[in-house]
């Protein structure tokens, strides 16, 4: 029974990947990433055969608190402050995003069969799901205009790494996970502040326009010569 539930959770994680990849609204994206984090946090509770250990419960509830409450709160706050209420402005269309995600999942399934993993996981597709989630995170980072979506992308990547960690170290996911979580926490915190300040300075947070800020500028260089 636990295996079936775990499989359903994996399916849900992948479906959330798909909806993240195609969602047009920033608020929905934040909620979806949070939901993914929460759902993924339930996974370790199903690892054992009997009732979950107290350590796992504490761990899970910490993760749920962080990913389900604190991160979304921070991000929503950044979104409101930065006035980035509109759409996520993807560079590629809906069908292309879906096909990319499906392709990533297919590639991940193939990769999952090739990776030398310990034979401890009983849940099918946990590795492909984690790889697909990581890919979705990259997709969000690379194909969206708003800086806040890029933070979201990091969060989704973290979700993927978390699931991957579960697949790899069924016994000791704690240490790795907590370290990464802390990094991401700091990152989100810093980014939240930075985004707020960028938007106050420039009235927008479109990263493709921020490229003007870089030191090297082709046209200006050309003029100089």
């Amino acid at each position: 029974m636990h295996t079936t539930t775990a499989e359903l959770i994996i399916v849900a994680i992948i479906l959330l990947d798909l909806s993240l990849a195609v969602s047009g609204s920033l608020a929905a994206c934040i909620r979806l990433a949070a939901a993914q984090g929460v759902i993924a946090a339930i996974l370790p509770l199903l690892a054992g055969s009997g009732a979950p250990e107290s350590r796992a419960i504490i761990f899970s509830s910490t993760v749920i608190l962080l990913k389900g409450v604190i991160f979304p709160w921070l991000l929503t706050r950044a979104r409101v402050k930065a006035n980035a209420r509109k759409d996520v402005e993807p560079f590629i269309g809906y069908p292309a995003s879906i096909i990319l995600c499906l392709g990533a999942f297919a590639a991940a399934s193939w990769l999952g069969t090739r990776l030398p993993l310990p034979e401890t996981t009983r849940v099918a597709w946990i590795v492909p799901a984690s790889l697909a989630t990581i890919f979705t995170g990259f997709l969000l980072i690379t194909t969206r205009a708003k800086a806040i979506t890029q933070v979201l992308g990091y969060l989704v990547i973290e979700n993927g790494i978390y699931v991957f960690g579960l697949a790899l170290f069924v016994e000791q996911p704690l240490m790795v996970e907590l370290a990464i979580l802390l990094d991401i926490f700091v990152a989100v915190f810093v980014m939240g502040i930075t985004i707020f300040h960028i938007s106050r300075e420039f009235d927008h947070i479109d990263t493709d326009e921020l490229s003007q800020l870089s030191d090297w500028h082709p046209q200006r260089d050309g003029e100089a010569e």
């Binding site: 399916v11 809906y94 879906i98 499906l102 999942f105 099918a124």
Partner: peptide
């Protein structure tokens, strides 16, 4: 509407992938 149907398509593809990985 094509997006919705694309979603159905991706459900089918995912189902096939899961079924294949079983």
């Amino acid at each position: 509407v094509p997006y919705l149907l694309f979603t159905a398509f991706s459900f089918s593809v995912l189902a096939l992938m899961f079924q294949a990985a079983r």
